[in-house]
Amino acid sequence: MRPSIDQIWDWLGEVPDPEIPAISLVDLGIIRDVGFDGDTCVVTVTPTYSGCPATSVINMEIEAALREQGLEKIELKRQLSPAWTTDWVSDAGREKLEKYGIAPPQPAGGPEKCPICASTNLELLSQFGSTPCKAQWRCKDCLEPFDYFKCI
């Protein structure tokens, strides 16, 4: 018996991002489509950054999660266009990021507030961070450095 498309989205919503496990792949906005081609489950995934080393791990984890639910025929498709944007990070995902200590992306290009003490007195340390999708900032009040999810 074939599971419903909604059911598959729910399962994928439980798969954590390998580098930022606080949010799921669905929260991150990289799952573009789920469907069936005959009896093959087709999941369309868009990369965050073209060189992100997590991409192949993400594909493996999607496949593993769906196999665990009993799906046998799975096809993963890569979709480059429209290019991934941080606008696709869900509201739930943004909340989870902030709780985890990562400032969520802002259209203004920098974090809105310190994810630890909520101060707005901030400075940029480096335009790049521990993963391709993050930059390093510091709070000038609580003095803690923190990750900012870059807006692209």
Binding site: Y49, G51, S126, F128, G129, S130, P132, Q136
Partner: peptide, 12 residues
């Protein structure tokens, strides 16, 4: 970190 990330994007 910035240089390594730039290199990573270029390799992607």
């Amino acid at each position: 970190i910035a240089l390594a990330n730039t290199a990573l994007d270029l390799l992607g």
